[in-house]
Design a protein around this nucleic acid. Structure first.
Lengths: 164, 164
DNA sequence: TATTGTTATACTCTATAACTATA
DNA sequence: TATAGTTATAGAGTATAACAATA
């Protein structure tokens, strides 16, 4: 259990992290340049578009961000920009229901083609169609495996200060 | 050129980004908890260990961080923590040569097993050995494709303000 | 003039803890 | 008591621009 990674595993890990880092950087730059959106903000809007119904903050937080206050902050920015609206839920008055506005949909529509272009060019420019299927299968399995495993279990220790 | 992504491409993209996001989050938490290191700081130290010689700031910046000032800041933190040393290069007096200290090596050794454990558990827990080879091959091709393509070319526009 | 690196500064993101309100 | 969400606050990361020194 304390043994290392095999050379092939090391190479794969480094290739994966570097490739994804480059991709994320390009994607973030595109979203910022063409829509003034951070990636998280885009995710929130995309999630609302995809859901085709208003979502609660808790539903939105699922998978998007790792703290409630972080989502509250981002939602505040998006609301100030007129891209979403928040109101108290009628079902459960503790809950906040978030809906995307017309302007929000316009913004997503404005940004999406460029976003897709970046992904297609950078990620899929080097892959054949069968490659895409294989990669999708592999990463779906990895993703499902991680989802089913509370991240904390691997790192149960207290948090330390940075680099000291 | 303005067409979208095929369903298989969409699924692959989402699986890839979510899986890597979960992995990165777990990795960052482990590095912070067990070594008080951010991922970038770990990368810098790992790069110095791997190089087996002092590196200039420019060499270090290559692939690690996206601005020189960002690296200067991180190097300052690592130097304050006693994990690296900086001095003026004798070859080119404009250059700064960065070397890892004994304490730096100790820190890497302290953190590495846990880091590897997280990667092995989360990333490779769902993959067979052949899978790892296939994934490594795919991502190496994607990475090389991105490296050879200046990221700016896909997003030539000016930067906008956030979400407004 | 171009390049290496630092500094000053500002902005964004994220997280923790305390708090309100409802279930 | 537990849950949904917000607020206040603080810390960390990153970037731009101006700058100094060297090539």
């Amino acid at each position: 259990m304390a043994r290392g990674l095999k050379p092939a595993q090391m190479r794969t890990y480094f290739a994966l992290t570097e490739a994804v880092s480059l991709l994320q950087h390009a994607v973030q730059e595109q979203l910022q340049a063409e829509g003034g959106l951070s990636y998280v903000q885009f995710e929130v809007l995309a999630k609302l578009v995809d859901a085709e119904r208003p979502l609660t903050m808790t539903e939105l937080a699922d998978g998007v961000v790792y703290s409630r206050s972080g989502l509250t902050h981002q939602a505040g920015l998006l609301e100030n920009a007129g891209l979403i609206v928040r109101k108290v839920s009628t079902d459960d008055k503790r809950a906040t229901v978030v809906d995307i506005t017309k302007a929000g949909r316009v913004r997503v529509a404005k940004v999406l083609p460029g976003h897709i272009a970046v992904v297609r060019t950078l990620l899929y420019g080097a892959l054949s169609e069968p490659d895409v299927l294989v990669l999708g299968d592999l990463m779906a399995r990895v993703r499902d495996h991680m989802r089913n495993r509370p991240p904390r279990s691997a790192t149960p220790r207290k948090r330390a200060r940075n680099a000291d």
